[in-house]
Amino acid sequence: MKPAPAVVSSVRGELALRCTGLHRYLGQGEGRVHVLKGVSFEARRGQIYAIVGPSGCGKSTLLYLLGLLDQPDGGQIEINGHLMSNSDDLARTAARGAHIGFVFQFHFLMLEFTALENVMMPMRKLAKMPVGEMEARAHALLESVGLGAKSRRLGTQLSGGEQQRVAIARALANEPSILLADEPTGNLDVKNAGMVFDLLTSLAKDRGQAVILVTHNPEIAQQCDLTRPMRDGVFV
């Protein structure tokens, strides 16, 4: 195993996330691939980070590890100063609910629910406020993504761009300190892609959230505070 590279830090705001020497293997037997080879990274609140690289270089795998959706085979992950890489599923789940918001390439809305209910879903689990307050907050978030008028529509009654905007509102529902976005504009046309990216970054900046996004789009990467190119499982 290679030694972990020196941690590159973009010092602005409070440290939200840190990973050191992350390794991850995928597959089994002869098909086992060393996807991440000792990746280290830091993210601070109020900063937008872009991870770029060719397909299969390990960008999404890294994002899922940082989002505690997957467990590393080696290395450490700290969320808001808490070491999470060795913690159990329950603790990682709780950390995801409280500190991390996700936006995926495909919106992953729950289509049987309205836009409002989708945004309220993480809040209901966290149960930090009364339902009325949750509803008001969800409304406000949908307003901020320009969908206040469509809050009662089911996921199936919204366009692709609108669905992705609902997904952004949902990701922000619990005021997470970290927002992880996996190709959030990858499935949208140019106009919608620009709108979604602008929304994502402006809302996150306003709230002092660390945004880490994986993208193939160089234009979007250029607009981020820091771009980290990746190749063959390491930052280059």
Partner: peptide, 16 residues
């Protein structure tokens, strides 16, 4: 399955 994944990403536990 995708809904399950998104619920899990939002903090819903296995027991949920």
């Amino acid at each position: 399955t995708k809904d399950i994944a998104i619920l899990r990403s939002m903090g819903y536990e296995r027991r949920d």
